[in-house]
């Protein structure tokens, strides 16, 4: 069980990181979302994997650790706010530059990329 759970988190993290490194805004937003799934599951699992328990007093014999759950609950909501913010930021960038590249305005005349190392390959 633990191994499968760990692999799941690893897959979410790896997928998130790969998309995070893309050049266009939308895949980056998707990547951030995947990454936050992974992080939330990881935080959640610090309370260990309990089957058939509840964090409700008097409802069951086995209690789960309520603290990580409380942390993750707010993390989910905050993660949503962050995703929303980033996606609107990318809309704004699209509106202002006419392009959805994460580096914004590239090769503008005022600020030429001197080293030619821009990530626009």
């Amino acid at each position: 069980m633990e191994l499968v759970f760990a692999i799941t988190i690893g897959a979410l993290t790896g997928s998130g990181v790969y998309l995070l490194l893309r050049a266009r805004t939308f895949p980056v937003v998707v990547g951030l979302t995947l990454l936050s799934y992974g992080v939330n599951l990881f935080l959640f699992s610090t309370g260990r994997l309990v089957t058939g328990g509840q964090p409700i007093i008097g409802s069951t014999g086995t209690y789960t650790d309520p603290l990580p759950q409380a942390l993750v609950l707010t993390a989910i909501v905050i993660g949503f706010a962050m995703t929303a913010f980033v996606v609107v930021l990318s809309l704004r960038s699209q509106a202002d530059t006419g392009d959805d590249h994460v580096d914004g305005l590239r090769e503008s005349p005022e600020n030429p990329d001197k080293n030619g190392q821009g990530a626009s390959q």
Binding site: E2, L3, F5, A6, I7, I9, G10, A11, T13, G14, S15, V17, Y18, L21, G38, F42, S45, T46, R48, L49
Partner: peptide, 19 residues
């Protein structure tokens, strides 16, 4: 891909060790 793989494997090992 290599960076992503390293991150994924790292998180897997870390989670496994913790759990």
């Amino acid at each position: 891909t290599a960076i992503a793989l390293a991150a994924g494997i790292g998180m897997t090992l870390l989670t496994l060790a913790m759990l």
